[in-house]
């Protein structure tokens, strides 16, 4: 089968070649995205309104932040199953710090916000650091490490919060980072933060030694080892960055819901992986760009908003998501064959 495609690609017309080149670098996703968008629009005309488009983009931006985090680890041929629960722990911990300094917004609000965000970043970096040290320095299978971390972080999140949401966050947080707020009169805060993270990630991945060595680690770990790079440190840093970006996502989610949520994170792992892989970040490591994650995040959001508008049962949506993940992995495989 792969041979056939190979022959076609080399002897086909110019248009065919161009299309194959397009699919090989971006996957089938942009096309699927357009069809899906129009398809939902046919079923439910409300779907095509500007307000809904804005809604989709806002929802996608939370997801894109988390999927970017996941991408850093996927690029090293790793995996982070603990991303979702790290979001929970960070959300709860930073909310508790903010509430204890300025309960109900009474007190030094700016100090509370700074301390809360600082806590979030520290908790995120710590979780990532533990993951990274176990993976990079002790050579333990990343699945197992992050699976264990999932148990640990879940336990921590439910223990420190007692299993209940943390209420009484200062309004300032919700007004500056929440969904209702706007920056400069037009930009929604989650979208703004998402764009900043995307630009920074793009820069780090393409123009720094660390970024390039992450790609090398994923595509050829032996070469990275022999090449004299501090590969263990870079590998660890990928996990630290992943959890830290996830922590930023957690702050955004906390600001959106207005509470510290101990149980939001559970489903986010699957979503973040689905978005990254559906977008074209390879599970075999070394492949994937920021733009892929943007496409993937948009796809998952279009699907979930569309299914909500079409009033599809939320449990059934979970089934659809599972099929999207399996389908995405299948397409990932297909893309590899086209390129060969």
């Amino acid at each position: 089968m792969s041979d056939q495609v190979n022959v076609d690609a080399s002897s086909g017309s110019g248009f065919y070649k161009m299309m194959m080149g397009f699919f090989a670098s971006y996957g089938f996703l942009p096309v699927i995205l357009v069809f899906l968008y129009l398809g939902f629009g046919l079923v439910e005309p409300v779907f095509l309104t500007g307000a809904n488009a804005q809604n989709i983009i806002e929802q996608a931006s939370y997801l894109i932040v988390l999927a970017t985090a996941q991408m850093f680890v996927l690029l090293t041929r790793g995996f982070d199953l603990s991303l979702g629960v790290v979001v929970s722990v960070v959300s709860v911990a930073s909310a508790m710090v903010m509430v204890s300094i300025a309960p109900e917004g009474e007190g030094p609000v700016i100090l509370a916000l700074t301390a809360g965000i600082f806590t979030a970043l520290v908790v995120g970096a710590t979780a990532g650091g533990i993951n990274g040290i176990c993976v990079a320095y002790f050579g333990i299978n990343p699945f197992v490490v992050t699976l264990g971390m999932q148990g640990i972080a879940f336990g921590l999140a439910t223990t420190i919060s007692g299993g209940f949401p943390v209420f009484g966050l200062p309004d300032t947080l919700i007004n500056t980072l929440g969904q209702g707020a706007t920056w400069f009169g037009f930009l929604s805060p989650p979208v703004g933060v998402c764009i900043i993270i995307l630009l920074l990630s793009h820069f780090v991945l393409n123009y720094t030694v660390f970024g390039r060595s992450i790609y090398l680690l994923g595509s050829n770990p032996r070469a990275a080892e022999v090449g004299g790079l501090p590969w263990r440190r870079h590998n660890m840093m990928a996990y630290v960055l992943c959890s830290t970006i996830a922590a930023i996502g957690a702050i955004l989610i906390t600001a959106r819901t207005g509470t510290g949520e101990p149980s939001t994170g559970g489903g986010l792992v699957l979503l973040s992986i689905a978005a990254a892989v559906a977008g074209g970040v390879s599970l075999r490591g070394g492949e994937g760009r920021v733009i892929h994650v943007v496409f993937g995040g948009l796809l998952v959001s279009v699907l979930s908003v569309g299914m909500n508008l079409a009033r599809i049962d939320s449990f059934l949506q979970q089934v659809v998501l599972g099929f999207v993940v399996v389908g995405a992995v299948f397409l990932d495989r297909l893309r590899l064959r086209i390129r060969l």
């Binding site: 995996f79 699945f143 699957l270 992986i273 892989v277 599970l283 049962d313 449990f315 059934l316 949506q317 979970q318 089934v319 659809v320 998501l321 599972g322 099929f323 999207v324 993940v325 399996v326 992995v329 299948f330 990932d332 495989r333």
Partner: peptide, 30 residues
């Protein structure tokens, strides 16, 4: 899916995890 498409079993079973538990929840509504 694992054997024929030679894809990572983690991803496949993560997907079927979502499918199976989603079906179980859907059939009973929790």
């Amino acid at each position: 899916v694992v054997a024929l498409m030679k894809v990572s079993p983690f991803m496949v079973t993560l997907g079927t995890l979502s499918i199976a538990s989603g079906l179980a929840l859907y059939m009973t509504q929790g």
